[in-house]
Amino acid sequence: MKILVGIKRVVDYNVRIRVKPDGSGVDTDGVKMSINPFDEIALEEALRIKEAGKAEEVIVVSIGGDECQQQLRTGLAMGADRAIQIQTDQALQPLAAAKALLKIVQQEQPGLVLLGKQAIDDDNNQTGQMLAALWGRPQATFASQVVLEDGTATVTREVDAGLETIAVDLPAVVTSDLRLNEPRFVKLPEIMKAKRKPLDVQPLADLGIESGHQLSVTRHAPPAQRARGVMVESAAELVSELKNRGLL
C-alpha cells in the first residue's frame, strides 16, 4: 500500500504574524517558513505505519512555488520515499487544492491519504473533507489515533464532546489532530540521503486545474490593540478608576 501525505509550507508557528500595512495580506518578508505542524504529524503517522510493515511507500506532495521544495526535502529527510511538487505561484483555496490533490491520488492510487486537519495559515479545515468527497471515498477527520487492519482504518477522532471512534474502509482520507503523535527529529545524515531521493515537479496547469478563487478576501486586519493598563495603589483608587470609565 502507498500512503500519500499532503504538506503545506506555512509561516512557522513561532513567528509573530504581522499584517502588511496596506492590509493586502500577511507579511512574509524574512519570515521563517515551516511544514504546517498538522501535516508534519500526518507524515509522522504515515512513517510509523510504514515502519510497522503496513505500507510500502510514503509519498509527500505539496502545492506551491519552488520554495516549497524545501519543505518537501524536510519530509524526505524525515523518511518519505519520494516527493511531488504541484507547481504554482498562486495560493490555492481549499477546493482547488483538493482538486489538484485528487489528480495525484488518481495517478498514484494510494491506499490512504493523510493530511493535516487544517493549515495554520488560513485555518480553513476543508481540503481533506473536499478531497474525500471528490474522490468518493470515506473520510475520518481530527484523528488522534489510527489503527489499520484488513482494509479498514479504525480512527479515534477528537470531537467537541470528547472522543469518537469510527471505522472506515480503505482507501480513505484521514486528517490528523495535534495529539496523534509527536513528530521525530531528523538525523543529520538523513538530510544528505534526502537530497538524492526523487522529487517530481508537475505544473498545476498540466494537471488541468485552474487556480481560480471561489472566495475573495477583501481585507486583512490585526486584532485591536489592548489599551495600556493602569496600576492602582488601593481598592478605593480601583473603584474610582472604574467609575471614571463608566464601568461602575
Partner: peptide
C-alpha cells in the same frame, strides 16, 4: 559532536530522542 535531540530536563531520553552524530 552534534548535540543530542530529545533529551528531557532531567537528562533522561524522551520518546523522540536522537543521538547527535
Amino acid at each position: 559532536i552534534i548535540g543530542d535531540m530529545g533529551v528531557a530536563k532531567d537528562g533522561s531520553r524522551k520518546a523522540t530522542y536522537v543521538e547527535g552524530i
